[in-house]
């Protein structure tokens, strides 16, 4: 058997995108890492007491403070003179990263800690029952932004955290998707090799929360990229240095295969909303020059 740093037997759903993300991140980092996880699906599925799926040192404290804990781990290693022994990686969900932990994350980036912060983005709070987060895309139905007679689901666009991270003037910001596993591994390798704070956002579809069959996790991830709703790029020292070019597909291809967007296909107002989503995709494509 091959070496597995994220052990099987974890409680992720069949087809779990977050588990794929965790495996790929650890493939990129290797075993000499200390992983910090905030509260979230990944924390819950990987650490049902008294078990742990982690084969590397791993610490969980609270929902909001993973970046602060990671900062502390880094400073502790420095003062012990053991900085060369391990890289520090945070692996947290979008709720913990983009909503709840954005303060400590901003502090960690601003203070210049040598930590790689990886957000696996499944676009809602999955472990507590699919509540919307600030990373939930426009039009998605969640339990706290339910589609109904009046509502068309989430009414605000996805928060652009990579841009906020880049605004801290950090050396490396990247986005990736589990649908392109080699790209994820390469970006993690690259991020941990750079000194200073780094931010990576990895799109990780959630079959349970988004409403699709577990076998389609990768296919849905690929569609998000191919429709330009999740652009893949790298920002090095403040400049966009690489983008994944795509042969673009219409956003309907991505929306119609997920329960969370299905209501949009059933009404005239939904059709309007789909136009708005296409506008978001078009803007992404133009901003990053995604079209082949």
């Amino acid at each position: 058997m091959q070496e597995e740093l994220f052990a099987p037997g974890h409680r992720g759903c069949a087809g779990c995108g977050a588990a794929i993300a965790a495996r790929l991140i650890l493939k990129g980092s290797g075993k000499d890492v200390i992983v910090v996880s905030p509260t979230g699906c990944l924390e819950v599925i990987s650490s049902p007491y008294p078990e742990s799926a982690w084969e590397v040192p791993w610490i969980h404290s609270l929902f909001e403070n993973a970046a602060a804990v990671a900062s502390g781990v880094e400073v502790a290693l420095k003062s012990l003179g053991r900085k060369d022994e391990a890289k520090i990686i945070v692996i947290g969900g979008d709720g913990a990263t983009i909503d709840i932990g954005i303060g400590p994350l901003s502090g960690m980036l601003e203070r210049g800690h040598d930590v790689t912060y990886v957000c696996y983005d499944n676009e809602a709070y999955m472990n507590t029952g699919i509540q919307r987060s600030s990373s939930t895309p426009y039009g998605a139905s969640t339990t706290t932004s339910p589609a109904g007679k009046v509502s068309l689901g989430e009414n605000r666009p996805k928060k652009n955290l990579p841009a906020i991270a880049a605004a801290h003037g950090i050396p490396y910001v990247g986005t990736a998707s589990i649908a392109y596993p080699k790209d994820v591994i390469r970006k993690v390798k690259k991020a941990i090799s750079i000194e200073g704070p780094k931010y990576l956002q990895i799109h990780a579809p959630c079959c349970t929360g988004w409403g699709f069959d577990g076998s389609k996790t990768i296919e849905i991830g690929r569609l998000a990229v191919e429709t330009a709703l999740f652009p893949i790029y790298e920002i090095t020292d403040g400049k966009v240095t690489s983008v994944k070019k795509i042969k673009r597909k219409p956003v309907e291809d991505y929306l119609k295969v997920q329960r969370r967007f299905r209501h949009l296909l059933k009404s005239d107002r939904g059709e309007e909303a789909i136009k708005n989503i296409q506008d978001i995709a078009d803007a992404n494509a133009e901003k990053f020059g995604l079209d082949l």
Binding site: P8, G9, P50
Partner: peptide, 18 residues
């Protein structure tokens, strides 16, 4: 690297869950 304190469980122990 080896950490000596704070550990609550064995690495990879979810493997008991088939």
């Amino acid at each position: 690297m080896k950490l000596s304190i704070g550990s609550v469980t064995k690495p990879g122990s979810t493997r008991i869950n088939k």
